[in-house]
Amino acid sequence: MQIIIDIDDPVPIFSQLVEQIKQAVAGEKIQPGDPLPSIRQLANDLDVNSKTVAKAYKLLERDAVIQSRGYRGTFVHPEAKDNCQIDIKAWATSQFEEFILAMRDAGVTDSEMRITFNNVLNGK
């Protein structure tokens, strides 16, 4: 299974990696439990910074598409096929929509929401 990235593509490299690994899982080109290359190997083969690959792996691990097993390496998650169908951005959008509606019903203005959101996000 080959992975191809385009460094001139406006889509960030880590997103291209995440998408292609998810597509490989969805298309059953890689199976649950299959080992994945190490961060260093993939970064060297693609000639990109290892932090870029690490970021992609971190996002895939968060989405439970891959799992890290310490020194044994990184593997495709047993539930990867189901998990890679979940669009976390769409889920977050719907959660925010519900929350904003509830706030507006309670009479909170958009400006107050923005200020409060920024304060909470920045830990103030």
């Binding site: 299974m1 080959q2 990235i5 385009d6 490989a24 080992p35 290359p37 693609l46």
Partner: peptide, 11 residues
């Protein structure tokens, strides 16, 4: 070349 290719199998 802007396109780069890698194998998704560990060596």
């Amino acid at each position: 070349a802007t396109k780069r290719q890698a194998d998704l199998n560990p060596r």
